[in-house]
Amino acid sequence: MASLYDLQGREVLKQKTDLAVIRLPSLPSGLYVLLLQTKNGQHILRKVAVK
């Protein structure tokens, strides 16, 4: 599962995926927080910059 949040904490994308690639639709430029949940329940947080 992949969720993308803007810096105000609003979820802007939620995607169920088993792929190593996450497709980002046309999002406004800015910074986002990506939260990934692996199959074994591990959570991974990353900052994402969209140009």
Rank of each mutant, 00 (worst) to 15 (best):
A20E: 13
V21L: 12
S29I: 00
L35H: 09
P28E: 10
V48G: 05
R23M: 02
R23N: 14
D6P: 04
L34C: 11
V33Y: 01
K47W: 02
L4T: 02
A20D: 15
R23F: 07
R46W: 02
L24A: 09
L19I: 00
P25A: 14
Y5M: 10
Q8M: 13
T38D: 11
I22H: 04
L7A: 07
Q37C: 10
G41N: 06
L31H: 09
A2K: 04
V50S: 03
V21W: 03
V50A: 02
L34E: 05
V48I: 15
V12E: 03
K51N: 12
E11I: 07
Y5I: 02
L27N: 06
L24F: 13
D18G: 14
K14V: 08
L7G: 05
I44F: 08
Q15D: 08
G9C: 10
Y32A: 04
S29T: 13
L45S: 10
T38E: 10
G41L: 05
V48T: 05
L7K: 10
Y5R: 04
V48K: 01
V50D: 01
L36M: 13
T17D: 05
Q42M: 09
L35R: 13
A2E: 08
G41E: 05
V21N: 07
G30K: 04
V12P: 00
I22V: 14
L45A: 05
G9D: 07
L7M: 15
A2M: 14
K51V: 03
R10D: 05
